[in-house]
Design a protein around this nucleic acid. Structure first.
Lengths: 223, 223
DNA sequence: GCGACCCTGGACAGTCTTGTCCAGAAAAAT
DNA sequence: ATTTTTCTGGACAAGACTGTCCAGGGTCGC
């Protein structure tokens, strides 16, 4: 199935009344609602009837577009894979004057929801705990992302061993933090990013980068 | 409901054949199997029929001990609360000659499965994502544990602000790491603990503590 | 031995889910 | 305007799960 650049095209049909008696839904509509449900209720919440109700159509419409619920779940997985890994790889490869800035670039992915959909990522991660195939895809994604972070540290002069150790901590710590869905006050988030820089860049952090980190942490995205 | 010290008393009845035609099960049996299922399959997997099958008895036995499935889930929550918070508090309060050792003590909880059942903790955490009441209890537990870690840093001379920042990173990082269920090689785990010590104790780590950390990380528990 | 209480098995109703089938409406092609 | 293609609604079957009910078997105190 051809993978587009994931245009989020929720039905722009706010009035519940069908346009002309016949409601048209596309496979993307089913997929979008399915994704919402995956995030908010887990894979068990992705039910054909529930999606249909939210779209305002009957279940049989679903079976016109998808062979079965299983096929929908596979499409959902493809969709996730296309969305969430590329931004991390991109940001790890961005030019940075020193390791402090590089860590800031990495961190940026996790602050800006447009770059990385953390809710989606952890909905899939949760799903993977009950499904071996999903688990394999998560593992592959983690390996790919981790390799990018490791390469980032290596480009800034760390040995292969140290780069991997630091990459593991940085990446999994960030993911884990998101996974917990901690309600974190802004001040705490700033302190946390400073902690990353102090603890894991391995050198005295660049003061300018620390200043930028504060700005990132506060959600302002273009310093 | 009186809370015992949670003696794990799985039915020691390996042969499936009932002892004398009449199988005896206790409420603890139902609870133990329910806990197993919560961990391995999530709250959706905690089904009366499934537990009964594993115990080798019919569902109606369940309704003798528990008013409903809902009541079982509440008992499960009480059980988790009694099990998993105390060890962390205890280990944070253990005497330590310096902050490096204190961090090691904390870390020890997460390495020894008898001290802290990480699988259970994150099964409950996952459950909390779909249930506001559970979420409140998780939040309360996190706050309690975090306060203990913060106090630990404060006892070793950190200011209130710094102690809290470091405690947040240390505790949530460790929890988050577990939450991801990363398959981590032993070498990586050792490197990670060293990273904690280097990054978050805030002082040049005690070499003896680092050595002890390696031992902890390798699962040997009594240096 | 005997009665009282503890506990179990199986049947039943009710709800929710997936997946199939088919008549027929709406839109597109001719 | 008519035919063809595309899509939808509702009915149906089958399976999983919860909760209720009740007859009756086991076990323990006396």
């Amino acid at each position: 199935m051809a993978r587009r650049a994931a245009p989020v095209l929720h039905r722009d049909n706010p009035d519940k009344e069908p346009l002309s008696g016949h409601v048209k839904v596309t496979p993307e509509d089913w997929l979008n609602v399915a994704r919402d449900l995956l995030v908010s209720e887990g894979v068990a919440g992705v039910k054909v009837l529930a999606i249909g109700e939210r779209l305002g159509v009957s279940r049989s419409s679903f079976y016109w577009y998808f062979k079965s619920r299983k096929h929908l779940l596979e499409a959902l997985l493809d969709d996730w894979e296309a969305r969430n890994t590329a931004p991390i790889l991109d940001h790890c490869e961005m030019p940075a004057t020193n390791i402090s800035w590089a860590v800031c670039n990495f961190f940026r992915c996790f602050v800006d929801p447009d770059l990385f959909d953390a809710s989606l990522d952890f909905a899939v991660r949760e799903w993977s705990r009950r499904d071996g195939k999903v688990r394999n895809r998560i593992d592959a994604a983690d390996a790919q992302r981790l390799a990018a972070v490791t390469a980032m540290f290596e480009r800034h002069g760390f040995s292969a061993y140290e780069a991997e150790a630091r990459a593991r901590i940085l990446y999994f710590m960030q993911c884990g933090y998101h996974a917990l869905e901690v309600r974190e006050p802004m001040q705490a988030r700033t302190a946390r990013l400073e902690g990353y820089l102090l603890g894991f860049t391995g050198v005295e952090p660049d003061p300018e980068a620390v200043a930028a980190a504060r700005i990132f942490a506060e959600g302002k995205m273009d310093p």
